[in-house]
Amino acid sequence: MFKRIFGSAPQPPSSYPSSKPAYKDLKASIGKDDFYAKMAEADPANAGKWKEMVQVQKQFKDAEPSYSQPEARTYSESNRETLHRAATKLLKDQGPDRVYDDFIRLHPAVFKENGACSLPLRSQVSILSNTKPTMVNGENAKHLLTGMKNDAQYLDLVQAAAQKTRESRQKEGKPVTLSGYTIRKQE
């Protein structure tokens, strides 16, 4: 009927939420092991990179019980959830194809927002030792450097994602990170 009256049926917007997997399914995977596998489905142009992130996430998650200081584990868990939330928002706002590069660029802001610089040096080294070398070379290195030089570009997105992570963790009775940006302002 709509088509007869107006000449065409309404088209769903081309934004991500109508894509497979559904946006709500991806959002429900925040903090879970299948998150990057779902990102690979949602962003097929970068599927190989997202699939590599599945292994990177597993490596960090498997290492968390070995951290001698609880702040390191809180930081690592919070980074994962913050990165998931930020990637989901990027995908929703800009659709697939550009998300992966922006996802890598926003890592320095996520690290700082979750208080990386306030962690004891031993914790920082423990976490860094679990970083897969391929994640910090080549194209990723270029994007990380760009993100370090211009973290302000992602600051609002990252701080909103980190705040949602903090709220979610508090509801679960888990410890939360403090913003490295806030700590710096107070010094």
Rank of each mutant, 00 (worst) to 15 (best):
M1C: 09
F2G: 00
I5E: 11
I5L: 14
F6L: 15
S8H: 13
Q11N: 07
P13K: 07
S14C: 05
Y16D: 08
S18K: 10
K20W: 07
A22L: 14
D25S: 15
D25G: 03
L26Q: 08
S29L: 14
K32Y: 05
F35S: 06
F35W: 00
F35M: 11
F35K: 12
A37N: 10
M39F: 10
M39K: 08
A40W: 08
A40C: 09
N46L: 01
A47R: 02
A47N: 08
K49P: 03
E52D: 09
V54H: 05
V54M: 10
K61G: 06
K61R: 11
D62E: 14
E64C: 08
P65H: 05
S66G: 13
E71H: 04
E71Y: 04
R73A: 12
R73W: 07
R73F: 04
E77F: 04
S78A: 13
R80F: 04
E81S: 11
E81H: 03
T82G: 05
T82R: 02
K92P: 01
G95V: 04
P96H: 09
R98Y: 00
D101G: 08
F103G: 14
F103I: 00
L106D: 07
L106W: 01
H107G: 02
E113A: 15
C117H: 02
L121I: 14
L121R: 11
L121M: 11
L121E: 01
R122D: 15
Q124W: 06
S126G: 15
I127H: 12
L128R: 06
L128C: 11
M135I: 03
M135G: 04
N140F: 03
N140L: 00
K142N: 06
G147D: 03
K149R: 12
V158P: 12
Q159A: 06
A160C: 00
A161M: 04
K164L: 10
E167F: 04
S168C: 00
K171V: 02
E172C: 03
E172L: 13
P175C: 08
P175T: 11
V176W: 04
V176H: 03
V176Y: 05
L178P: 01
G180P: 01
R184L: 12
R184V: 08
K185T: 09
Q186I: 08
Q186C: 00
